[in-house]
Design a protein around this nucleic acid. Structure first.
Length: 104
DNA sequence: ACGACGGCCCTCG
DNA sequence: ACGAGGGCCGTCG
């Protein structure tokens, strides 16, 4: 486990149910602006789903983004959290967006 | 040390 | 609205 991986995982676990954040925001939160893609790389390797809710991290354009168990599963989990989705895009994004970088 | 690749992001037509 | 292209940064070979 590298430092980078630790930082990413440790910070996404505070995202509350019913809220989402973005890959870019996670990068910003760990002071690695520009590493959004690398953040996705870490989340891809996550297997501790109950500990690290990686499905609550989406793309900055409101699209769901990818998921290591399939986009359909990611969508299902988000809906279970009470989040509305239309055409792979999250609705009401402004209100459910979790500003991770300000909560650290 | 290096190159390729990605759960991305932004700009420009 | 939508796609193409380039940039970015950590990982793994």
């Amino acid at each position: 486990m590298t430092k980078f991986q630790e930082k990413v995982l440790n910070c996404i676990k505070i995202i509350p149910k019913g809220r989402v954040t973005t890959y870019n925001e996670v990068a910003k939160a760990i002071k690695m602006l520009g590493s959004a893609r690398a953040v996705g790389g870490v989340l891809k390797t996550n297997s501790q789903y109950s500990l690290y809710p990686c499905y609550r991290v989406i793309r900055s354009n409101r699209e769901i983004g990818g998921y290591n168990r399939g986009v359909a599963e990611k969508k299902r989990l988000l809906i279970k959290d009470g989040i509305k989705i239309l055409k792979n895009k999250v609705l009401n994004f402004e209100n459910i967006f979790f500003e991770l970088s300000k909560k650290i």
